[in-house]
Design a binder for these strands. Structure first.
Lengths: 132, 132
DNA sequence: GTTTTTGCAAAGTATTTGCAAATGG
DNA sequence: CCATTTGCAAATACTTTGCAAAAAC
């Protein structure tokens, strides 16, 4: 296995994610970082996002459609995805990890984790009454 | 809005899904149906899968990586995705819809539904001791 | 006959990868 | 120096789409 070396790009990506409450896509991260580091490449962003996700330093949020989003907050929480504007927001709520126990009851394999995504209309889209 | 016309291709796709307990991808469905209908196209498969999903006659299963899977069983249940072989299996379990109520407590938007995917090692991969 | 659906191929979106050069330790 | 990371561009994976022909009604 290989040792991890410091990289300014990776550091920026981590910092960028840490400083935001929304959940940007690779493309968004790329565009933003490019203002400070004009030579950073999209490939590098993707490579580092994958690496950081594997390391468990950030979380990847896959939705039913569109690109993946990324979250610098790895604390226990879930996400809400608006079916209208596709915004991803945090959904801090009481711990529901007991659904793991419920799931394990009738399953032979080894369950290690779960992802719960909630769907609907975000506050904004609800207000503006946008149609499905 | 437009009226729906019968199509042999759409019917085959529905039947194919109804006759299986696994959760094939568009590509798998395409390959299988092609043995009976050599001229069916992948585009048609995708178009019908989207349509059937919108109509609520089948379910689309998006995972953290790889192509979407499809499920002909629209009864209330969840899915387990093996991190090793990427197989998707059914996880019939006690109803956990109350997590909706838990989620709604601290959220301003309108939550309409959720998707809970469970991850880990399937029975097979657990046995054969494949590494992560 | 009119509308919907198809097959085909081409385009679109999201992501990964090969490689030589740059950077880190 | 040697190992890792980068930028760039090309490649890949998955899905959607335009259009003329075929099928449904």
């Amino acid at each position: 296995m290989s040792t991890l070396k410091y990289s300014r790009q990776r550091e920026s990506i981590k910092n960028f994610l840490a400083g935001r409450k929304d959940h940007p896509t690779a493309e968004t991260i790329y565009s933003s970082l490019r203002q400070e580091q004009p030579r950073i490449s999209l490939g590098t962003v993707y490579r580092n996002l994958s690496l950081l996700t594997e390391l468990g330093e950030i979380r990847k949020i896959s939705t039913d459609d569109g690109p993946d989003h990324f979250d610098g907050d790895i604390s226990q929480h879930h996400h809400f995805i608006c079916r209208q504007c596709h915004q991803v927001s945090d959904l801090h709520m009481e711990n529901i990890d007991y659904i793991l126990d419920t799931a394990k009851k009738n399953f032979q394999g080894q369950i290690e984790g779960y992802v719960a995504n909630f769907y609907g209309l975000c506050e904004e889209c609800k207000k503006t009454g946008n149609r499905p």
